[in-house]
Design a protein around this nucleic acid. Sequence first.
RNA 1: GGCACCGUAGCUCAAUUGGAUAGAGCAUCUGACUACGGAUCAGAAGGUUUGGGGUUCGACUCCCUACGGUGUCACCA
Length: 597
Amino acid sequence: MNNINQILFPYVVQAVSQVFSVELTEQSIQFQETRKEFEGDATLVVFPITKFVKQSPEQLGNAIGEYLVQHCPVVQQYNVVKGFLNLVIEDAYWLDAFDTMLKGQEWGWELQNSKPRIMVEYSSPNTNKPLHLGHLRNNFLGYSVAEILKAAGHKVTKVQIINDRGIHICKSMYAWQASGKNDTPESTGLKGDKLVGQYYVAFDQQYKAEIAELIQNGMSKEEAENKAPSMLAAQDMLRKWEDGDEAVTSLWRMMNQWVYAGFEVTYRNMGVDFDKLYFESETYLKGKEEVEKGLSKGVFFKKDDGSTWIDLTNEGLDEKAVLRKDGTAMYITQDIGTAILRFEDFPDTAAQIYTVGNEQEYHFKVLFKILAKLGWNQSDACHHLSYGMVELPEGKMKSREGTVVDADDLMDSMKDESRLMAEEQGKLDGLTTEEKDLTYHKIGMAALKYFLLRVDPKKNMMFNPQESIDFNGNTGPFIQYGYVRTQAILRKANWNTGVDMVLNGEVKMGGEERNLIKLLFAYPQFLSESAKKYDPSIMAAFAYELTKTFNVFYQHCNILREENVDVKTFRLNLTSLTGQCIQSSMSLLGIQMPEKM
RNA sequence: GGCACCGUAGCUCAAUUGGAUAGAGCAUCUGACUACGGAUCAGAAGGUUUGGGGUUCGACUCCCUACGGUGUCACCA
């Protein structure tokens, strides 16, 4: 991308070489954006250069500035403040930039599929309970990173691993069977994941009651936890499942189907999708095989009791078990299998990204070390996209204590809120019921997604239900509103993209227009940084900044009322491109734009 | 206790990765052409960046230290 810094760079080298006969290193030339309280479009930080040229920063800045004005065609003027050289760039440069942006197909995005394949894993739920607020952050984050990587030119495969086997699902199965009620989603009218989740809670209650009773009868806590009848029954089911017991596996299949049907609804609401699903029940055996292979290669070792381990003490980690003494697979076993299976399924995969909460950082460190030792993680191809917890004002979410914020409920209430707001405004009159409903959905989801994605993924964040439904300020709906306004203006002007795009070079720009063009021109840099760091919050900041900058322009410049045709055309072009870029940058967050709101 | 991450305005978040007077939104206060769509814009107020040391032209950022918060340290997932 030929941004202004790259144009200036060689001239600065030349300036210092001509004036002072000193050759600069690349590192000593640092550009940054000019602060808005100073005049200029680009700023050279002079301090690093003083190491090579023995002059005061001010003198040096003036000398370089003088040279640039004379020799670099795009530099119009300069000023020096302390050790900072501010450069004013010619309007012609920005108009030229604007022209190339208008001519491009999808300004800001790279050529599709021009870069290596990256696999992005996200969601990866357990199948024993419904999705909650934490999953929303996970899904929005993973989906968004995938979209950003696509826009940055990568081939992308979105995957998830469904943890469909294990003691957790057996608990729900046992409780369902023990209740003897034969409830189904159809008979109860409940979503499948909600129904299964209820039985998971029921199991926990029964289990706790049994433990309390056993302790009362003189048993130790630990013993009671191990000997509670419900737990023994669930463990029995797990064994039978591993043995392929017909009754258990068909129950397992039925209840998992209920959950998938429920998840399907939730995912559709969230607006996320996947290219390929992996099921733990299908990969854990692969994991065991790979461990066996590794064992023969000496990567792993067996302890006397028959359990299999890896020694990572030389890597600053501990010893870690990879197979139980009875030979059964563990959590990490299936992760080994899944990772290798994915590399085999998609041999052109350059990187795998795991969107998983930061509480599993240690787990992934271990996993990636193991994969490296097995020869499957060359040049750190695996990356843990670790994100912080979502906290509530009253404390942490605990599923057993009923303090979880359910994903479906939350999405519904956001939509309700946007409906109330929109009805108050009354701007949707004339739309059909379906169109209105879709608009409420878009606005509610924008509020929610933007709220969760605008913060740095790695940080813990606070979710305050009251504040999250604010639609003013730095929010999704604020940005949508800005977009809707661009479209309203274009509609009123009977603007047809591609027909009216005649730019006249004579146009004189004001500061508001200039700022807008500069920001639009920086879109690709925001995108590539966002992709490089797997961080959607950078795109969120861009979309917000763009909307605010447009609002200032709109507030200070007439568009439709402008009488000079050239200026009006220029401003309509600017409005059109801004709308397009708001839409495309927000789409990278999974947020859709309504036409009216 | 060991290790990892975090601590910025009353609240929720930023800060171009070591650069200028630490920026936005919410809440509070004051304004704006009889709205080109006011879910807007202009402005005020709000900070010893948890405390203490150090490194240097320059530190929210790097190093040391104390304090506070979170996570993790299973043959659970």
